[in-house]
Design a protein around this nucleic acid. Structure first.
Lengths: 336, 336
DNA sequence: ACGCGCTCTGTTAGCGGTCACACTCGCCGT
DNA sequence: ACGGCGAGTGTGACCGCTAACAGAGCGCGT
């Protein structure tokens, strides 16, 4: 029942100018007399005028919105990334429209991308950490700026990603440096690139050090899986160091070891990945690897903006190095 | 350098009809001959036509987008809520635009709300769990459908919220039922309504049972704070049961107790709130209270939709009851 | 005096949809 | 035979904004 929102013409009438002049004031166009500008601004304030982005989007062909495609925004990593992305976008004057997707298969992804395209978003960020997303993305319309985050490093798409391998190498090396003969790895789900990268880094560090590479212990991202794997590892007397693909797995491992009477770090050392806020309060405080989600978000946005503004140019690939956070879950191996 | 996206007139020309008929097909208008409908659909498919939501939003005055205002989407609760909201919205054909805000003060909130209004969103959901948000909201334009989640129960705004007090009562009662003479409470930040509700429920359960009400232990939502409070509680021999305002606090308490050699649940029982996925893998597995974020999201959306569709009517307030999840962190108090 | 260029402002034509309305049929009742 | 009606379709006017161009007024060189 509300009256129509004031439009540009209303402001123009009140200020005694044409709507075009109002538009110029709004867009910071230079050739407007100071006095006119002030009159217009006063009229805007008086009417509580709010430019209609939809109209602007219609005539310019693009809206100041960035579409995000994400899978599970409840996991710590994706949630942090999303928050960081939103903040970075806001700083550049963009809004963020999220499209969650249950599975990262072609159908789901392109459905959400279609929705975003229907809104004429300025660009799209896809958080595409699994294999299935890669192929889906290649079949997308090419005429919209697009950046993938945590995606497939082997595909020719603009990509920003955490340097998983570097993080894993640092974690593994840290354990080797403490004196452990080798390091076991509880990995994330096999179709995630994050998992793959962390496995790769772990393996590299071991072989570079001439250490034996123990069999991989595959899991998913859950504490439950970590617990199951931990129960197994706890029974193997020669295991002295474990690197888990994330902190939640580490939590599960920690509990399994605890229940089996194996002390951390005295008997076994554990390192995680992600540095969730609680990691410092695990029993014991967890040594882990911290990715810089803010940096990833900023890099993604920057890459997107260069695509939006220019026809081409700018880096197509960016990796952000994570840092090791040493806490109390690592110690030298026990003497035999 | 892409050519202009096909528009309705292009489809119309190809199908040999008027743009209006295309519009009718798109909107499922009844009076279109089957044969015409098929011709139009074929043309749509052939051109890869995608209706322009911006144009539609312009002429109808509202876009099929729901704006969300949220503070810290990294915390488990808000993140889950956001995800659930996005899913519920998608099921109703709405997109979700997130506006994060650093502080929930008037300036920040109204800035984000302005942004949403500029996009002519169909409605706004504000996740407003703190005091400062309440007053900010009352000063907002009244002509847009708005629902607050986790907001101030004492303000006359459409509100959907978890029944914090009920959850807290259940948690406290559970501990009393186990035989504990009383229950201590480590609370969340004092300006959060979630905290207030949980404190209230805890107090109610104690007084209803005729138990002594111990002094409140105030904290924030972090494991760090839980740890500090836990260190204090660990030193007090008569503390046998602790209810923490969330699971992260419980984690911190658990570690402090562990370090002080006080066993859980043998010496002290602990109950949390939220049921984060890892809670089952704390040491020991944490008894906690699980809010149903999906239900909250669905209720919020439904409330918003009735506001959007009709002039008024529909409930203005809805609470969804959380459920207690019993695990191993609770046991009868030790014998003296 | 004149024309040129600059600054500032107004006019007009869309952008791609929806809405209100008009129109053409074929069918029915009387 | 004729008016009325409903189904199916087309026409034109907008929604609120931006882009392109036109025009007014002024200072300046010649």
């Amino acid at each position: 029942m509300a009256v129509r929102d004031p439009a540009m013409t209303d402001v123009a009438r009140l200020a005694g100018v044409s709507h075009q002049t109002v538009s110029r004031v709004l867009n910071g166009h230079p050739n407007v007399r100071e006095q006119t500008r002030l009159r217009v601004q006063a009229a805007i304030a008086e009417l509580g005028y709010r430019p209609n982005r939809a109209a602007r989007a219609l005539v310019t062909g693009r809206s100041q919105v960035i579409g995000v495609v994400a899978q599970n925004t409840t996991l710590y990593g994706p949630a942090s990334l999303l928050a960081a992305l939103e903040q970075a976008a806001a700083e550049s004057g963009f809004a963020v429209s999220v499209g969650s997707v249950r599975d990262l298969d072609h159908r789901s992804i392109s459905a959400v991308v279609e929705r975003h395209l229907a809104h004429r978003v300025a660009g799209i960020v896809v958080i595409a950490p699994v294999e299935s997303a890669g192929e889906a993305l290649e079949r997308l319309p090419k005429d919209v700026p697009l950046v993938t985050v945590d995606g497939d490093p082997h595909r020719p798409m603009p990509l920003v990603t955490v340097d998983q391998a570097a993080g894993a190498r640092a974690a593994t090396q840290h354990l080797l440096d403490a004196g452990h003969p080798t390091v076991w790895h509880v990995s994330g789900p096999s179709d995630w690139f994050d998992s793959a990268g962390r496995i790769e880094g772990w393996r590299e560090a071991l072989t570079a050090a001439g250490a034996e590479v123990p069999p991989l212990v595959p899991a998913d991202w859950s504490a439950a899986a970590g617990y199951r794997c931990g129960q197994m590892l706890a029974r193997m007397p020669d295991v002295t160091a474990v690197f888990t693909a994330n902190d939640h797995l580490a939590l599960g491992v920690l509990r399994a070891l605890h229940e089996h009477g194996r002390r951390v770090p005295d008997d076994i050392s554990v390192v995680g990945f992600d540095d969730v806020p609680e990691a410092a309060y695990f029993i014991p405080p967890l040594t882990t690897v911290r990715p810089d989600f803010g940096a990833v978000a900023r890099a993604s946005l920057e890459m997107l903006l260069t695509q939006i503004e220019s026809v081409s140019g700018g880096a197509l690939r960016e990796t952000v190095a994570p840092t090791l956070v040493a806490r109390r879950s690592v110690a030298p191996p026990p003497r035999r």
